[in-house]
Simulated assay, not measured.
Amino acid sequence: MSVVPFRAPLSPRGRSVLVTGASSGLGRACALGLAEAGFRVFAGVRKEADGPESTGSAEAFGAITPVRVDVTDEASVAEAAERISGLVGEDGLWGLVNNAGICVSAPLECVSPQRLREQLDTNVVGQLAVTQAFLPMLRRTRGRVVNVTSGLGSVAIPFLGAYASAQFAKEALTDVLRRELRPLGVDVALVQPGAIMTPIWGKVSVAARSAMDGVPEHIAELYRIPFNRFLHHNEQQARASETRPEDFAETVRQALTAARPRSRYRVGSDARKVSVLARVLPDAALDRYLRPITE
């Protein structure tokens, strides 16, 4: 049996990384964690005042540069790429962490076409637009793309159909990018975090309840009780989770520095459990397992 020789992780020193969606939650934790590890971090935010440079250890302050980028706005993406290209110069960009995203939560019968477009435009179309804009810099360094999805990239659960559709699509994009870019020297990895308590859960609940406001009452009434129960359970599950934003940041660091990056990294026991269930259970059994959500 041949033994693969151990190769030490790469040093973050002298390497630049862009993290999108870095104004709060997992993106903010990721930007801070990567800066503290030694990366030069460009924190992609919709408003530069929302950059994460105001928190974290003192060592990270000088290593984070907020950059305004709206992933749904092609002009904004192009401007960000031009600015970062000018800042990194011939050194290029080592890593792109596609973390920006939104979560539309509602029964699919209650998701308007506009809301579905917003979900897909932010989590799928916008991610590809950002990747395309920064690939010339990544090819120069033979760098890395890290796409962030979730456990819902493996299993689509009731009341998160729009979000799961985006995550499934991003998983497919990641697989294809990995296969297309590897011959060009760019590695692509996927990070799937499970439930982690961040401010997004409160925002999801508020937005989800408002999503029902424009639905005809006779339809909304069909879903209201199980949907509200689902939202409460989701938030409680996140609060009870032992997985921390710092665990996510550390996993992204591993994907960016591993000598041989894995194709997938799962963060948290729930993300690993969902992945196993998706692989081993037939559809009928998985449907039965998820049925209590809708009852």
Rank of each mutant, 00 (worst) to 15 (best):
Glu90Pro: 09
Ala80Gly: 06
Pro66Thr: 09
Ala63Lys: 10
Ile64Lys: 03
Asn98Thr: 12
Thr65Gly: 07
Val69Gly: 04
Gly86Leu: 03
Glu74Met: 13
Glu79Gln: 14
Ala75Tyr: 03
Val104Met: 09
Leu96Met: 04
Cys103Asp: 14
Ala100Cys: 09
Val69Leu: 13
Ala63Arg: 14
Gly101Pro: 05
Ala81Val: 02
Val71Met: 00
Asp70Phe: 03
Phe61Ser: 14
Gly89Cys: 06
Arg83Thr: 11
Gly92Arg: 06
Val97Ile: 13
Ala78Gly: 13
Arg68Phe: 07
Ile64Gly: 01
Ala106Thr: 11
Leu96Ala: 02
Gly95His: 03
Val71Ala: 07
Gly92Ala: 07
Ala100Leu: 02
Glu79Asp: 15
Asn99Gln: 09
Leu96Phe: 01
Trp94Glu: 07
Val88Trp: 01
Pro66Gln: 00
Ile102Cys: 10
Val88Glu: 08
Val88Lys: 07
Ala80Val: 01
Val88Tyr: 02
Thr72Ala: 14
Gly101Gln: 06
Val67Arg: 00
Glu74Trp: 10
Gly101Tyr: 01
Ser85Glu: 12
Cys103Glu: 15
Ser76Lys: 03
Thr72His: 09
Val67Phe: 05
Leu93Asp: 04
Ile64Asn: 05
Glu82Asp: 15
Gly95Glu: 01
Asp70Arg: 10
Gly101Ile: 01
Arg68Asn: 04
Gly86Glu: 06
Glu79Ser: 14
Trp94Cys: 01
Glu90Gln: 14
Asn98Met: 08
Leu108Lys: 13
Leu93Met: 06
Asp73His: 04
Glu79Thr: 12
Gly92Cys: 05
Glu82Gly: 15
Pro66Ser: 02
Val67Ala: 03
Gly92Tyr: 04
Ala106Gln: 10
Val71Pro: 05
Gly62Gln: 14
Asn98Pro: 06
Val67Pro: 00
Val69Pro: 06
Phe61Arg: 15
Ile84Trp: 01
Glu74Tyr: 11
Ile102Lys: 09
Pro107Lys: 02
Asn99Tyr: 07
Ala100Gly: 11
Leu108Arg: 15
Asp73Ala: 08
Val67Ile: 14
Ala106Asn: 10
Val71His: 09
Ser85Thr: 14
Ala81Met: 04
Glu74Pro: 12
Pro66Glu: 02
Asp91Ile: 10
Ser76Thr: 02
Arg68Gly: 11
Pro107Asn: 11
Val77Trp: 00
Ala75Glu: 14
Arg68Thr: 09
Pro66Gly: 02
Leu87Cys: 07
Trp94Phe: 11
Asp91Gln: 15
Glu90Asp: 13
Ile64Val: 14
Arg83Tyr: 05
Val77Gly: 04
Thr72Ser: 13
Leu93Gly: 08
Ala100Ser: 12
Thr72Asn: 12
Leu108Glu: 14
Gly89Val: 07
Val67Asn: 01
Glu79Pro: 08
Gly86Val: 04
Glu82Phe: 10
Phe61Asn: 12
Thr65Glu: 13
Ala106Gly: 12
Val88Thr: 09
Gly62Arg: 13
Ala80Pro: 03
Gly101Val: 07
Pro66Ala: 04
Gly101Asp: 02
Ala106Val: 12
Ser76Val: 00
Asp91Cys: 13
Asp70Lys: 06
Val97Pro: 02
Gly101Ser: 06
Val67Asp: 00
Val77His: 07
Gly86Arg: 03
Gly89Phe: 05
Arg83Asp: 12
Thr65Leu: 02
Ala80Asn: 02
Ile102Pro: 00
Asn98Lys: 06
Ala81Asn: 01
